[in-house]
Design a binder for these strands. Sequence first.
DNA 1: CGCTTCTGTTAGAAGTTATAACCGCGCGAT
DNA 2: ATCGCGCGGTTATAACTTCTAACAGAAGCG
Lengths: 215, 215
Amino acid sequence: MTAARRETPRERYRTQLRAEIKEHAWEQIATAGAPGLSLNAIAKQMGMSGPALYRYFSSRDELITELIRDAYRDLADTVRAAAAGGADLAGLGRALRTWALTDPQRYFLIYGTPIPGYHAPDDVTQTASLIMECLLDAARSSGRDVADDDPVRAHLAAHRQWAGDHPADAATLHRALLFWSRLHGILSLELAGHFTGMGLDPAELFASELRALTR
Amino acid sequence: MTAARRETPRERYRTQLRAEIKEHAWEQIATAGAPGLSLNAIAKQMGMSGPALYRYFSSRDELITELIRDAYRDLADTVRAAAAGGADLAGLGRALRTWALTDPQRYFLIYGTPIPGYHAPDDVTQTASLIMECLLDAARSSGRDVADDDPVRAHLAAHRQWAGDHPADAATLHRALLFWSRLHGILSLELAGHFTGMGLDPAELFASELRALTR
DNA sequence: CGCTTCTGTTAGAAGTTATAACCGCGCGAT
DNA sequence: ATCGCGCGGTTATAACTTCTAACAGAAGCG
């Protein structure tokens, strides 16, 4: 068994309070976005005074990084749960959309406007490749192929390091990539409200792209 | 001729200084993103002290709103210039991509993470429909149709208010919409750096989607 | 039981946006 | 040509923010 010496009460308390802080942070992000997140406001909500939070997160950036990490992990868990439940590529797409709709700002924390200076830590790219692995698995057993004569196939076959050691042919790589970019395109526009004034239903567009992908 | 009484020197100075402020603001946004924009820093750069800028922009939000407006207009001008130059749908796509790559943060100001409270003023939606008009024009004379049996066509035919009074059939509406969402999908991922660690060339993906759209 | 370490406090520095009060120059009208 | 209003700039100040420093108290561990 793992060398887990019984965790001390202090450690318990510490992780518990960290979680509580993140809980309040998510509330704030959901209502005011990431730039509106204020450590002071969180502390006030929790009934303690400002600098106390620095015992748990060394800076505001570290808190946000942790939130991004959690968001990524949660997305990966969601996708993997759907895949484990026997979902095909379309099922993964629907799972992705419902996950994004439940908390748009959480989605934008991952796929939204990047902060110029910021660089994601290694483990989130690891989580990203976990997601990609699921996509590739599901993309293997999808419908018939389209655009198999596209020159990009050669490029994908040549540069497949992002797929790790996944045994997927160029068509599968292509489909997974299109799944990702196309669904993100619609989702991102929908969540940002770019469809609202147009009078059409984003769900229809999303479903349509999903059909085109799995046809 | 327009009732433009000779503009006073003060008005000249005012508009000139407003432009200068926006110039510095764009620099800051390009290097630190929108949330990193600081009125104080701009004032310092211009050699004047903080609150002076409030003579020209009533608040930081108003400045950003103005920048968004300008960005939208610039995008619309770019697209329309390409269309006026005889560009087809693929040409518009390439123009869009180069425009986005020249200043990613400017692109994200339009299509990036939305600020929860913020609502775009009317004239930007007007500019948006200007862009869409160009897209619809170009989408009319594109290659043969794909997926003409998709159920979304009925939905598009029924909800076509976003196309204004443009005489486009459902296939054209569909193609313009796919053009928008798919290219935005790739562009957004590319600009946010989600392709960097993967070792593949976003330009190839973009070109491939463009081919699929205009095939 | 005592020592150490961890947690929370207040104080304060260096920023930010934004408002208020004030001063002087220049434009426009007379 | 000159007078006066208004505009543009300034400083001072308030209310925020993140974050550091110094300190007090409590809780855990040997």
